Amino acid sequence: MFHYTVETGKSMDEAIQSLEVSLKEEKFGVLWQFDIEETLKKKGFNFEQPYKILEVCNPKVANSILTENQLIGYFLPCKIVVYQDAETKKTKMGLPKPTALIEMINEESLMDIATEIENRLISCIDKSV
């Protein structure tokens, strides 16, 4: 499976606030928060599902992995989505797994770094549930 997704009893705002705290503890910063619902409405589309994408980065790791392979930049920054499920109306959080993305580059030497980042980001999500 290319992603890791969990459900939480928290509102989207509560989940994002908790997630930001967990990310900071792991030395990840939120670079940008993209509100898809708001953006599509501004463009004239009737998208009624709360859906946000957080772009997160650990500068030390980004520097290290980009030094090894510039193609990694295609996957940066890491993304974590927080949205209200259209059917259940429950808040969900998840991310594309860095290990799944690294497989596309087919460079085994980067898999350890991808695994470490994946585990750290999943831990942040799990702490935020």
Results as ranks from 00 to 15, higher is better:
E37A: 14
K89P: 07
V21P: 04
I117K: 00
I117L: 11
L110H: 01
E87C: 01
K79W: 00
E25T: 13
F2A: 12
G73F: 00
I102D: 01
A62I: 10
E26S: 14
K42L: 13
G94P: 13
Y51S: 13
P50N: 06
G44E: 03
S123T: 14
M93Q: 09
E118A: 06
E55F: 13
F47H: 04
E87A: 11
A62G: 08
V30S: 05
K97H: 07
V81P: 00
V56L: 07
I53S: 00
M104F: 12
K42A: 14
L121F: 05
S64Y: 11
S18P: 03
S11L: 07
I125V: 12
L40D: 01
S11N: 07
V81E: 05
A86Y: 13
I125E: 10
G94T: 11
L19N: 07
Q84I: 15
V61T: 13
T67D: 08
P98W: 05
P98A: 08
E118K: 06
E20Y: 02
K60A: 15
K89R: 12
P59N: 12
P50L: 11
F2W: 10
V30D: 07
Q49G: 03
E37F: 04
T115H: 09
I102T: 10
N58M: 07
V81M: 06
E68C: 01
M12P: 01
S123Q: 11
T91L: 07
M12N: 04
E103M: 10
I105Y: 05
Y4N: 04
D13T: 13
R120K: 13
V6T: 14
A114G: 08
N119I: 03
L110S: 04
A15W: 01
H3W: 06
N69G: 08
L40W: 06
E14V: 01
S11Q: 04
L40Y: 10
A62P: 11
Y83P: 05
E107T: 09
L31W: 12
Y51A: 10
Q33T: 15
L31P: 00
L110E: 04
K60I: 13
L19T: 10
K43G: 00
G29I: 11
P59A: 12
N106P: 11
F34Q: 12
K27M: 06
E38D: 11
E87G: 01
I102Q: 01
E48N: 15
I65V: 15
K41I: 06
F75P: 07
S22N: 09
V81L: 03
